[in-house]
Amino acid sequence: MTAGSNTDFVLAVEGLTVSFDGFKAVNDLSFYVDENEIRVIIGPNGAGKTTVLDLICGRTRATAGSIKFRNQELTKLKEHDIVKAGVGRKFQNPSIYGDLTVFENLEISYPTGRSVFGALTFKRTDAVVQRIEEIADMIFLKDQLHTEAELLSHGQKQWLEIGMLLIQDPTLLMLDEPVAGMSVTERQQTAKLLRTITKDRSVIVIEHDMQFVAEIADRVTVLHQGRILAEGTAEKVKADPKVVEVYLGH
């Protein structure tokens, strides 16, 4: 493993490689994310986009390379310690707790009482309730606090999961296809939501919808076969002939 250099970036990924039985899903990847930047990762299926997020949040272990979050090496940390360091991740399929209410979903994500003893003695204080209501308002679910999450629509589930991350107030937020399966109105609302929540934090988004990408991205990274194909602003990337050939062309 390379040591990785110390930088001013929120996230510095250097020489990141992961191989599954010889197949290199991510191959010698390096990229850097600035403070308050919204970075969108695009690329064809199997390009390794989700794997990159898996690697950052510790779900998959890197074969080689370094991931530094505010100069703290993440590749050896446990998943829950990565979360505690300030990295939040939304999964592709909405992962919410169907048997619990919206309120309880958010409450579990509230970042205190994370040990066994802490969970046993956790108290639903006014501060907790207030924060949950605040977040619920932000994610358009204020009227649904009592609803069991299973009963929410697909789009609402996506918002709920985003809310569950927001309540942790992560420094780096990673969203895997946040608008997949959403209606046009929901999509617009989500774009608005993303713009409000991305103040004061860095965000990595995986997305396919180029219009949506252009709307939110500061910079775009195009992945292809586990490597970076192009990087830059949305316009620059869209105009890149290599990108058009492997991804946008069809």
Partner: peptide, 24 residues
Amino acid sequence: SKLGRLLVAMRGQEDRVRFSGYDV
């Protein structure tokens, strides 16, 4: 307690709990 709700949460979405900062 919250631990009870966490158990219910883990039953269905263990990864989500793990990636919410809990050592499942």
